[in-house]
Amino acid sequence: MKLGLVIDLDTCVGCHACAVACKQWNSSGMSGPLTDYKPYGDEPAGVWFNRIRHYEVDEYPNSKTINAPMSCMHCEDAACVTVCPTGASYKREEDGIVLIDQDKCMGCNYCAWACPYGARELDRESGTMKKCTLCVDRIYDDNLPESERQPACVLTCPSNARFYGDFDDPDSVVSQKVRERGGYSMMPEAGYQPTNKYLPPRQKPLVEQHAEKAASTEKPLSQIQRWIAQQLTRQA
């Protein structure tokens, strides 16, 4: 299995609901708490597994706003695991999820230096590194109904821009999305083979505007006829 996420950059509205849901679930999860520093102070800060940044692509009037949520990509060639001196960071054989053993981490920051995606954040309170677990304590929980055995971010997304599944299964929703929409990896040249994929914005409007198209290809004479017919029906 190769579990991961697909994020649709076309439909993501940048509401940060996934980040909030992530924080809520994981605060009491296996890597919790996600410590906040001075949450009611002037400069609240804290540990998050998922961060959303907003970009403008191209120049006005062709510009488009892109909201890019980023969490751990669960890379196939995870440099953070390679460089970890203690063995606290590991990648699971069975499903490819990259995790940190909080009991082994010595907080040297080296894995965060090796990660190009900024997926790892040090918790100053516990002195250990923390990161997205793909809600490993949720997706395997038999006590939950099967439809809810998904990462918190995916379940909560109001614009349905996040998908979760097994990339090794060609019929899974994530594999289909990547195939149909040209899903791609961020910063592929870094060579870490990230599992998570992003769907590019659609080039065409979703709804084809047939009516207008038809009108423009009409012959001039029939256009005049239609205009006369409209005027008559309005007066009547």
């Binding site: 940044r53 062709n62 892109i66």
Partner: peptide, 30 residues
């Protein structure tokens, strides 16, 4: 890498609109 290859938009300019957090965090500090 550039901001373009980092985000996968290699055919147009890309600029940051909003970084998504109000104050610094581990990534900006480090």
């Amino acid at each position: 890498p550039t901001i373009n290859s980092a985000l996968g938009f290699t055919r147009a300019t890309v600029r940051l609109l909003d970084v998504g957090h109000g104050s610094g965090n581990f990534l900006t500090d480090e």
